[in-house]
Design a protein around this nucleic acid. Structure first.
Lengths: 300, 300
DNA sequence: CTCAACCGGTGCAAATTTTGCACCGCTTTT
DNA sequence: AAAAGCGGTGCAAAATTTGCACCGGTTGAG
């Protein structure tokens, strides 16, 4: 669209850090781009870029403008989606930032279901830190967040919250494999692996250990990958910890998953959310609705 | 701004109902405007106007576009206000839709106080129906609403709610003028004037009368103007009804204002609100804050 | 039934705007 | 001291937008 052109150039300049580089990226002369930027600033009434000896950089007004540009783009996408909707085309794009646990089973299943009804809708799915989620939403990089224990801040609007206990994963021949519920003290007497500090499971376990005045956590291995940890316990007879939503609903041969007693470890909060105050595009809004239904029905 | 130009033309065409008339309004040739509209529709991917034999009209997609345009304008105004804010200029515009009662004393006082600190901020103030308020907000015609008993709907976000009893206004020599509190039954035994059905005072009185199973309300005069009614009781010795926020805080010579007993008539709810989910421009947001403070402190 | 009055749309040339090129002055880097 | 990069500018070419004249179609009054 014509009226978003200047915005594209501004973003390019911001990314490239200099007008000349941005001009190359956009296949345009530096002088033309320079004039566009200058004219834009003149019409807007304020400078957007700080002129440095080695290029340009957004000033505070420019930061506000950048946010405005992103918000406007997303609004426009929503408008197109709505219009497509009423002309019966039903298309759009949904971008999701989520915890790693959602990647293997839950989201693929939910997305497939959604696309059964709406073939025109495309998805992007990205695993993100509990801490990264807010920025992800507020820069409009993602429409929807589905995360365990995100840092709770003002810009994050919780649509739905469900709890899941932490599960211990072990081999069938593990001494604790026949229990119906795991006690934290018992688990810590055996070798175990843990995710890094950025993960909700780790946060919950650390909190539990602090509360019960045990010794510090001493995992035999630490990893960012729940997949790795789950497979590791098949090698060395250890325990790994994970939320059940990330487990194969049909179970894994040779592995047992048992919940940790809620008396020892708080269950994790899985929050479905979006940027506060934002009206999502039709496709995203409907997908949020579907996710909410699936989560309350525990359909996984 | 350049990128809002097309939007202005689209709005003009919508208002005029035909491209040719709009072209005249905008001091441009019909052919040029026609081409702008066509190009816009082509770039957007969908037609915005329905072509009729006698002109054009927005189709459903166009309605969505119109809303988008208005929202975008208002977003842009907010952006400018924010940028002005951080360059220390402090300017902006605040538009308010309110009940008639706020016009004579409360809002003039509040606006004057605000402008003492911020000379650059301008205001528009318009009296609106309880029913018109929501549309006023959702079309971005007003930023803020301050209304008695508005129809309560989803798009109206209540920032603050305060109650005021209905007062009876009469001459000093009226038989009831020496009471400390008015009973509805007593009032109705004397001649009285009432506002139209669109006014909160009337709604509250009608409700009260229905509840107590009195005869129907039979005013000797009906008017849209509380000013008229207040002056009328000086001529014929009647009672008029009004919220105290609309009365001169210093009193009016020859007139007495007495509250109706809360046992008979529910007090009116004065709601301060805005469009749900909207982020107001800085100037408007601060004025809302000031209004809220004044209202809770009953500074009037 | 006819015809004037409007309507949206289009071909073409004029007017306006945007772009590319060459170049300036400046700062940093080598 | 020279080279490399940067933003900014004058000027002519290129591209876009506009105005004018006109077309085909519909409406409504005489």
């Amino acid at each position: 669209m014509r009226h978003l052109q200047d915005f594209a150039f501004i973003e390019a300049v911001m990314r490239a850090g200099s007008i000349r580089k941005a001009a190359e990226d956009m296949n345009i002369t530096a002088s033309a781009l320079n004039r566009r930027i200058n004219r834009f600033e003149e019409e807007f009434g304020y400078e957007i870029f700080e002129r440095l000896p080695r290029g340009v950089r957004l000033n505070p007004a420019g930061e506000l403008m950048l946010h405005h540009i992103r918000s406007q783009r997303s609004d426009f996408a929503r408008l197109q989606s709505q219009v497509a909707d009423l002309s019966g085309v039903r298309r759009g794009h949904v971008s999701i930032a989520c915890s790693q646990a959602l990647l293997p089973y839950f989201l693929p299943d939910q997305i497939a279901r959604y696309r059964d009804d709406h073939r025109g809708v495309t998805f992007s799915v990205n695993a993100r830190d509990r801490l990264e989620v807010e920025r992800e939403l507020s820069t409009f990089s993602s429409d929807i967040a589905l995360v365990f224990e995100p840092r709770h801040v003002v810009d994050f609007e919780v649509v739905l919250s469900v709890t899941q206990p932490v599960f211990g994963i072990m081999r069938e021949d593990h001494p604790l494999a026949s229990e119906s519920e795991l006690r934290l003290r018992d688990c810590l007497h055996h070798p175990y692996v843990l995710p890094g500090a950025a993960f909700a499971v780790r946060v919950l376990l650390e909190t539990a250990v602090k509360r019960t005045n045990f010794e510090r956590l001493t995992p035999i291995a630490e990893s960012e990958s729940f997949d790795f940890m789950r497979h590791y316990v098949l090698q060395e007879n250890a325990i790994s910890f994970q939320f059940p939503i990330g487990l194969n609903p049909k179970g894994t041969p040779g592995l047992v998953a048992l919940p940790l007693s809620p008396r020892d470890v708080e269950p994790g909060n899985l929050l479905l959310g979006q940027l506060r105050g934002r009206t999502l595009p039709v496709a995203s809004a409907r997908f949020v609705q579907q996710l909410a239904q699936a989560l309350v029905a525990q359909n996984f």
